[in-house]
């Protein structure tokens, strides 16, 4: 950050949403997916949710996104129900889910109001942010997996969300592309100031990106660990490896 213009940066960025979950429950038939979940996430925090398959982490994210309703307990975003913030919440899926019949720029402009030309201009700016401005007129089918996820990221950020939810968005990418995406996401999060909740099965990804790693096990919090390594983070550092080891040990059940 440039020390001479701290105010400008503050004005440009949006204020992240603060999340509060009290005794949240979710069942699918007799199966209890989330049980009595209490969680408080402060504005602008980057939280990673890890856990084995079926631990309820995807359901948790879908609850935050408003795609599922809780069967008990309350969710409050900045003190009010999530429905009030619907347009401030954006979700990135594991697959990019771009519309194949819209060009890249029109995919990014999806759901933007305020006239076609204005929407397109905003979309182009967002594409520039993720380094894909020159592919704006391409069909999504001609992009690589990493490029598609970058377009999806631009599409999510073009709405200037206050809460960005990420459902294993880099899981299907190759290792190098994944590292590139991590750097990009970290930079955009620092610039924009949104709250980020990342669901992942990659512990190293969680430690690299998050301020806080939460381990879910059988629908409740098994571990809640702050990550206080200064950024940019070096994955070969001793503390990094140590935190990764602690989390992995708990995931595997000691």
């Amino acid at each position: 950050m440039n020390a001479r213009h701290p105010r400008e940066i503050e004005i440009a960025s949006v204020q992240g949403l603060g999340l509060r979950l009290d005794a949240v429950e979710k069942h699918y038939g007799p199966r209890r997916v989330l049980s009595h979940l209490d969680l408080h996430i402060s504005p602008g925090q980057f939280v990673a949710i890890v856990g084995r398959s079926g631990c309820g982490k995807s359901t948790f994210l879908r609850l935050l996104a408003g795609l599922e309703r809780p069967d008990g307990g309350t969710l409050r975003f900045d003190g009010v129900p999530p429905a009030y913030h619907r347009n401030a919440i954006r979700l990135m899926f594991q697959d990019a889910r771009l519309l194949p019949w819209k060009r890249v720029a029109d995919n990014v402009a999806l759901g933007l109001g305020g006239g076609r030309t204005a929407a397109r201009r905003t979309a182009l700016e967002a594409l520039e942010h993720v380094g894909l401005a020159e592919r704006a007129n391409e069909w999504p089918g001609r992009l690589s997996g990493g490029q598609r996820q970058r377009v999806a990221l631009a599409r999510a950020l073009v709405h200037r969300p206050r809460l960005l939810l990420l459902d294993e968005p880099f899981g299907a990418l190759d290792a190098f592309t994944r590292l590139e995406m991590h750097a990009l996401l970290e930079r955009l999060w620092q610039e924009e100031g949104f709250t980020a909740v990342l669901v992942t099965h990659d512990v190293s990804e969680a430690v690299a990106l998050a301020n806080r790693v939460i381990l879910l096990d059988e629908g409740s919090v098994a571990l809640d660990l702050p990550i206080e390594i200064p950024r940019p983070r070096d994955r070969t550092e001793v503390r990094f490896a140590e935190l990764q080891r602690v989390i992995l040990k708990r995931v595997m059940g000691d």
Binding site: L67, R86, N87, F93, R97, L110, G111, R155, H159
Partner: peptide
């Protein structure tokens, strides 16, 4: 259906 879900979550 995943595209429809995406559309809904993007306010369409």
């Amino acid at each position: 259906p995943t595209l429809v879900e995406m559309g809904r979550s993007y306010g369409l």
